[in-house]
Amino acid sequence: MWSFFHKLGSPPWLYRIAGTIVRWLLPVTLVALCVGLVWGLLYTAPDFRQGNSYRIIYIHVPAAVVALAGYYVMAIAGAVSLIWKMKMADVAMKSCAPIGAALTFIALVTGAIWGKPTWGTWWVWDARITSMLILLFLYLGVVALYEAYDNKEAAGKACAVLTLVGTVNIPIIYKSVDWWYSLHQPASIKFTGDSTIDPSMLYPLLLMIAAFYGVFTCCLLMNMRAEILEREARTNWVKKLALEYRA
């Protein structure tokens, strides 16, 4: 267990294992994404009330779910880099932020596109949507804060503290529709009890959520590989790698 943890801290080992994982995970993810999209967008029945416009759920919900889960990945990486001063955890935290921001942005935009025909408005300042906007600013804040420092160590520390403070937003986003009166509907997929979405619509949705987790993981690992190469550019193993590629 501890040896695995120590290996994770080794840049060449992490670089190599991340490459192997991406090589296997990326094709699987792309297949799942294509199957899920075609299944959800073409082969499921329209909703009894919303008609076809509900199909945006197959992009909106997976993006939002993974944006929330990705924040915890970022926060845990931030905590590890604060406590153990592990450079690779700092790399993971930094690499999470732009992906999370992109997913949050997708969730907000698809939500607005769905909101116009369904609710009658693009945007409303209800608890769910506002807290989701705060999540976008948190992700962008981490990106900006990291770039604001010249010293990588100080940047990592400041960003780790910011991500930890921001974790409080995640349960707020998740429970906002239950705690307050909001325009956004409560969750249809329930961990306890029956889901209020028909199984024929639920299965492609679950597949899309899994595919988005795959997309997040692949993007994260590829981002981390690029970041590792940049930080380790002066080391022998990177120089050797560069020579191998040239040959």
Partner: peptide
């Protein structure tokens, strides 16, 4: 504004 609930189902099921 219309408020949609959390129920999703095909028309036949409804």
């Amino acid at each position: 504004l219309a408020k949609h609930d959390e129920n999703y189902m095909p028309p036949e099921v409804a």
